[in-house]
Design a protein around this nucleic acid. Structure first.
Lengths: 196, 196, 196, 196
DNA sequence: AATGAATGAGTTTTCATTCAT
DNA sequence: GATGAATGAAAACTCATTCAT
């Protein structure tokens, strides 16, 4: 029962299936067939729509990156004042949609992928750069330039570090404590809470 | 002309070759043949000594973990006072032997491996736990228990985050600035340098 | 907006596209999709009109065979006397419409196809037989029967040999020199030019 | 029961199997598995020794080319006088080892292969060039230069044409009549037999 | 008349692994 | 102690073909 306009639907289904399959398998060694089966289609269709495994993986990465970007943008839109903007960025990075086992697994595998795929590397660098510049932009309004840079770097490293560490843990990732840790770092660095 | 007592030598050569090969390939998708060729032996020999690819990988991980453990222990031995012990741990994690491209790549791939291999996961948890307890032990002597826990977690996350971020960068990893960032965090959290 | 009476047009377009595609790819490994795209239609339509790839290929062969047959017939119609009839046949085989890269490629692949497809083999035998009988018929009026047979065979082999050899050459096929070679053979065999 | 020094043996077996398989299938669409099975080994071994299907095919071509080259050389060595040298070349091209169904099929498919593979094309051009120069060299001692060139071309075309036509026929290829046809051409062209 | 959607079957290729020597 | 020989199993990818619209 073929219908028209299935392409975007199938692409989306395959990307979602890829994220789940990567998580279940724990690496990019998932086969296209596994992903396709999970999406309820043949592996040939996955190739048809994406051109190959690699491009499906890259598309998945891009999807996750976009989702995160949207989350950050939305958070920033609602934020009031520079300090809150920083918090919004942090919150977006640990938002429930992002900070869940399957997504964490996927991100981790992408870091490895980036070591051999220039395209994946570019995407990951865009993420890293965007995170840094978003943070730095807000921090510049709060503290001197040099400090802003340093705090931006520290915050970014802390976020990535917490992500990676959660990839190792079992059970649901607790966003609250991760956020608290970063906020604590920020308060201290920015002198917001002198008594922390 | 086979010689006696080659086993430990071969094992070591193969492990080193594995680290290099993993780095060059950027993932655990290296073939046993590639590793063996780099070590100057046949792939059959790699199997002979390790039993299989998986066990060679695990052995490589264990090797890296041991090296890091030795570095930390040596650092701690030379450290004077709790604050310096914390610094020693940080320094050991960014020591030149550890903080170089090939090793960084390898660690990253191990994080992924841990998602599907219970054995690898156990090893990585040992690392995480050891890092945390080493830090916590020293911090307990400096600040109240709850804060010590939190700072230990933050420091560990920061270290891991910096590692992972360096995996993305090109050019030689600069340990100095990474260390400075962590030390700054510690100073701030511990009130060592009120003016930082 | 489908139109009526498209069938013969589409069939022709697809056959032409097949010839070009076969030439470009250099073998029958062209995909139906490639051929269809070149004809500006979907691959499904190619199946609709021909029933399958094989039948499209056979139809293409038949088309080429027919074209050649028409060329020969036209040449024979205009020829005056048996010797000129032989020349007309030779000329038709090296006529510009036939003796061009794409067509040469196609014929060559058909020879291979004939080794596995009885249908293709039949077509090619028809060609071979027709060429031989056309030549023999005219030659019989010029020389004794046995010699006529032999010269017909030689001429046919020479024509085919020159075709196949031109398939290997680069640059435009020069019909003139090919024709000259065959004519020289004929003159010698028939004693037309005693001094050649 | 693995033995040492199997490589050359296996290579030879695989090449022979390739020739047979190509003949049976009638084209280069044989699968590596079919070839390997015929050689009594796994398809993986074929890849191991040749690197891939393409290289196996090229190696097979080269083998056939070499065989033919040896045949011609041996024939030339035994020949007495230029006219006999020409005959030796012709005879070698229709020698029983060469002029048999499987070999004829293989050559034909190689002609097609040459249209898409530069490497195959190069090999085939070497063959064509060698045939021409061998013929021309001998003919130059018999007739004027221009005529020698033309006769060399005609002879080569005749040989190729007879080959290709035999590929279409069923039943055993009759070398004798093919040779007779070429010799008749030569006698006529060279004026050897004034009464032909 | 024409096509987008979808797939089954098949092909090349890769690789960890085994084994006789 | 060490390796060349060999393979089974699996993966990515391709393509002719079908079908509902």
């Amino acid at each position: 029962m073929p219908k028209l306009g299935m392409e975007p639907i199938r692409r989306r289904e395959l990307i979602n299936a890829a994220i789940e399959a990567i998580h279940e398998c724990g690496s990019l060694d998932v086969t296209v067939s596994q992903i396709a089966k999970r999406a309820g289609v043949s592996s040939a269709l996955a190739h048809h729509y994406f051109g190959g495994k690699d491009q499906l993986i890259i598309a998945t990465m891009r999807h996750l990156l976009t989702e995160l970007g949207i989350g950050v943008r939305d958070g920033l839109r609602r934020a009031e004042g520079p300090r809150d903007r920083v918090s919004a960025i942090v919150r977006a990075n640990f938002a429930p949609e992002q900070f869940q086992p399957a997504t964490i697994s996927a991100w981790l595998t992408f870091y490895v992928k980036a070591q051999s795929s220039p395209q994946a590397q570019r995407l990951l660098r865009i993420y890293a750069h965007r995170l840094h510049s978003n943070l730095a932009e807000a921090l510049h309004r709060l503290v001197p330039s040099a400090q802003a840079q340093r705090v931006a770097e520290g915050t970014a490293a802390l976020i990535d570090g917490l992500w990676i560490r959660y990839a190792l843990k079992e059970g649901p990732a607790e966003a609250a404590s991760a956020i608290a840790l970063v906020e604590n770092y920020l308060d201290n660095q920015l002198g917001t809470r002198a008594d922390a």
